[in-house]
């Protein structure tokens, strides 16, 4: 290999830090008690870890072959855009489907806000239907 040792270590730094982050997120996925806390562990750490691994691959192909890999840039942008959206969607659908929080959690502010909003909307709709009936 005609690759410099320094560039090897740069690539390894990216890849090993990304691997460590993915491993931590899997520990969080295993140990945390709840869907919401698991989504907190999984999405954040997996996103940054995967972007770090992909950046390591980009650096490898840049230093080794002298090629700027457009597919890896596209993959980094795509993962950076879509992984937080996927985590948000998972937690939102879980809360709307009525998945309970863990027993040790203290407060569910979204449910209070939703109930207040539903009460206001229900009052408005009832008033409107009374008006249309009269």
């Amino acid at each position: 290999m005609n690759m410099n040792v320094i560039t090897e270590w740069i690539v390894l730094l990216f890849i090993l830090s990304g691997t460590a982050l993915s491993l931590f997120s899997s520990i969080g996925l295993l140990r945390l008690p709840d869907v919401y806390t698991r989504s907190h562990a999984s999405t954040k750490t997996t996103t940054i870890g995967l972007i770090s691994i992909l950046a390591g691959g980009f650096a490898f192909f840049l230093f080794e072959d002298g090629v700027i890999s457009v597919r890896l840039i596209l993959a980094i942008i795509f993962v950076f855009l879509t992984a937080p959206v996927a985590g948000h969607l998972t937690a939102r659908s879980a809360h709307r489907a009525g998945v309970q929080l863990a027993d040790i959690s203290v407060k569910d502010e979204l449910r209070e806000d939703l109930e207040k909003h539903r009460k206001e909307m229900g009052g408005k709709e009832a008033a409107e239907s009374k008006e249309t009936q009269s």
Binding site: V35, T46, L50, I53, L54, G57, L72, A86, T90
Partner: peptide
């Protein structure tokens, strides 16, 4: 929802494995 989350995490880990494999085999 736990299962959806785990499927998401699995696919991201597989993407990382494929990236490291393409580095180790030095192919694009």
């Amino acid at each position: 929802s736990d299962r959806i989350l785990a499927l998401d995490a699995m696919s991201y880990n597989i993407i990382g494995i494929v990236t490291i494999l393409s580095i180790a085999l030095n192919t694009q």
